[in-house]
Design a protein around this nucleic acid. Sequence first.
DNA 1: CGCCTTTGACCGGCGC
DNA 2: GCGCCGGTCAAAGGCG
Length: 161
Amino acid sequence: MTDKNPRPPDSPDDDFTNQWPLELSEYLNFDDDQWPDDYPESFVSGHVFSHNNQANEVGNFGGSSTHFEESSSRDVGNEREKKEVRDRVAFKTKSEVEILDDGFKWRKYGKKMVKNSPNPRNYYRCSVDGCQVKKRVERDKDDPRYVITTYEGIHNHQSYI
DNA sequence: CGCCTTTGACCGGCGC
DNA sequence: GCGCCGGTCAAAGGCG
């Protein structure tokens, strides 16, 4: 259990989104805290990119379309001290494997079967000490060839691997 | 030797 | 009040 609350005040914030190693073909931001029960398939349509810059690190990235979603209460400004200050970022990536290397070390801490999906959902956590970033990975129930990765929180460190 | 993976059980919240 | 669901932790084992 970790009742400590690190996160130095000098740590960079949402800037990390700018240094994302991946090129996002599209980016969607929802005003709501959650997505609809059933995201339409139009979500996944077209825009198939070929990321070559990352391919040198992982061979699994050959040809993948990535969709980016962001939901966070940055407009409120005053709600910084709330318990839900975590940034929720959802990626939809076309991949045969679920283990997409985003440049960070993740330790799997749980697997669960959600009723809305015939496929299990995997829970990962950043292995770096002080970094409480969590990651949720599951396959699309309508398109098993797509993988939905949801990131929660901001990394305490900027170095990856 | 250290770290990560896996499965089960437990817990909290919400709905009915 | 109970049931359901999603989320997390824990212990053991396996692998590098």
